[in-house]
Nucleic acid binder design. Structure first.
Lengths: 344, 344
DNA sequence: TTGTATGCGTTATCAT
DNA sequence: ATGATAACGCATACAA
């Protein structure tokens, strides 16, 4: 372990003061260009690297942005992260990422860690059983911006980047109705999460607007993963009257559903028209191709990160709290899993 | 912005020395239990949080581990990350994650950032065009362990966690041969990456062992993504003689291939038997179900992280350089996309 | 344009 | 079991 070079070493070597070295390295304008060059060269030659701790200690700023997601191994979340990383990296920020594994407890612990790590800002997509967001108050108290994305607290008017889940679900349901469906099942996750609560709303509104009575037995709560798809399909098959439409809040689950339904001899879309959500790659590969809602994950990541970074400059404590929610556009993509009558 | 509480504030409040406070907070054994409790209580009550910068500055240790992956939005990589996060979080480490976007230049820049961030250790899966790993020497020089996973440098005897790609590809190819295939196409990525170079080897060995001549025209280099699948399928369709076997190094690409082939009226597996790689969810949902190699991403993440953390304690510079490569078991999962004769 | 002096909050060292 | 003091490496207010 060779000794770390400090600005003092460089200063001594060059016969200037540490201050000048510090300024030069930070590209301070009030340093002679030649001196600056000399210092840069020496730094490089001596293998100097800035000590971020000392720098942070002094400047009270890290260059780290914290991110808490429910799960890392989710195709949607990883798109979001990719978008965030791109923007953050370009802006010179590091990302500290952790997952709550859908546990509010773990989310709190992660938030605590982030807090202690003194991230400059925090981006959060909430765990499914998170009831309130008090564990982020510590950040707000210190003036550290917190921005929610995709899954925001359903009650509070928290700042966040989302899609209009109500509208998206409305459109999906309306599409099924237009295809002649009258008995539509909706599969969704925990309605503590805005995402699912809103979609349920959209589903109900669409039914209402088309004078189809809402039946709570047509709502199935699920983990929305691959295995759950099978269970749901079996549940459907065992119903006394088969539904004619199925709106699943996730492509992987919908795909798995379709597979099991097909194995049971049910025709898609003739017997049951199916719509998913997310526009995952799988929706384009399953047969029949899955009608779904395009969910702009990468873009959501970009937007959320850009927005957060924009707010890092100003010290106006809690500005973000009053900022409006940013809603990204989503889009229903109609494919054959729900198409009964050719639209001309 | 309320003022940060320091150990001095606590010390003053309680009439003890800052040293004692520091010790108590770090659970040092040589502190009276009652004093300790008193300090803990005061800290909590006063809203104290440890200043990691000051701590790091003094102790010369961050609790951060850097990770560089080619892409964040890859189902395999996100599984790996999930495994890593689990282990790291349990051990009290933070993860700083960045993506190289398959660019060696960006990888170098990211490595530089990680270096300056003074991560305690680094986990890397290389970009496809990375020719050498000299940009990680800075870490090794400082005694910071660097561990590669999945994609390791093909030439050097770099330490890493991998699967036996040669064997896996051998088994996949052998399986196709056993299904009666004699003209097998292999689709793979850049052979600068060990992963693909090794699989090509396995493919060749299997042919050799079954006395099928190797034909370089049967090797297709590709990006292995969804779009590429279509192109490959079209390339295959336009061949003067259709192959009877297809071994694609990635499930998403294989699935996309299958879809296009089917649309062209080619029957899977009767006309062409297809094998993928990764055991992505899609392999279980496409029709016919895709034969593939199970690639233990989550486990790979866990193992790599555990190993790295184990090495953080000892200061024996570069221990990792001599550690053997850790090879995880992968497994061929036979499904209907390649099954021509029912095995009884 | 450059330098001096000081503080950021912690932990290591040595002492008691 | 506790305390006094000195680093850790940098950035800034102030001085020149």
């Amino acid at each position: 372990m060779n000794k770390e070079i400090t600005i003092y070493d460089i200063a001594k070597d060059l016969g200037v003061s540490p201050t000048t070295v510090s300024r030069a390295l930070n590209d301070h304008p009030a340093v002679n260009v030649k001196t600056k060059q000399k210092i840069f060269d020496a730094a490089k030659q001596m293998g100097y690297r800035s000590n971020v701790f000392a720098s942070n200690l002094r400047s009270k700023k890290t260059n780290n942005i914290g991110i808490i997601v429910p799960r890392l191994n989710s195709s949607f979340q990883s798109s979001v992260l990719a978008g965030m990383e791109k923007v953050a990296n370009d802006a010179g920020f590091n990302l500290i990422i952790s997952q709550s594994l859908e546990s509010s407890e773990k989310e709190k612990a992660n938030a605590r860690t982030m807090f202690n790590s003194r991230v400059d800002g925090l981006l959060v997509s909430l765990a499914s059983n998170t009831e309130n967001v008090e564990h982020f108050n510590a950040f707000l108290d210190k003036g550290t911006p917190v921005l929610f994305f995709d899954r925001v607290a359903s009650n509070s008017g928290c700042t966040g980047v989302v899609i209009d889940n109500t509208q998206a679900a409305y459109n999906a349901t309306k599409h099924l109705i237009e295809q002649g469906c009258k008995n539509i099942i909706h599969v969704l996750g925990n309605t503590k999460i805005n995402v699912y609560a809103d979609r349920l709303k959209g589903y109900k509104y669409a039914l209402m607007d088309h004078e189809i009575p809402f039946n709570s037995k047509n709502v199935i709560y699920s983990d929305l993963n691959e295995e759950a798809g099978e269970d749901i399909a079996n549940k459907i098959i065992n119903k006394k009257t088969l539904p004619d439409g199925l709106f699943v809040s996730n492509d992987a689950c919908a795909a798995s559903c379709i597979q099991t339904l097909k194995q049971a001899g049910i025709r898609i879309p003739e017997d049951i028209a199916v719509v998913g959500f997310n526009n995952d790659i799988i929706s384009r590969l399953i047969e029949p191709n899955l009608t779904t809602t395009h969910y702009p994950g990468y873009e959501m990541g970009e937007v959320a990160m850009k927005n957060l970074i924009n707010h890092l400059g100003d010290n106006s404590k809690g500005v973000l709290q009053n900022t409006n929610t940013i809603t990204l556009r989503s889009e229903l993509i109609v494919r054959s899993s729900s198409l009964r009558q050719k639209t001309t």
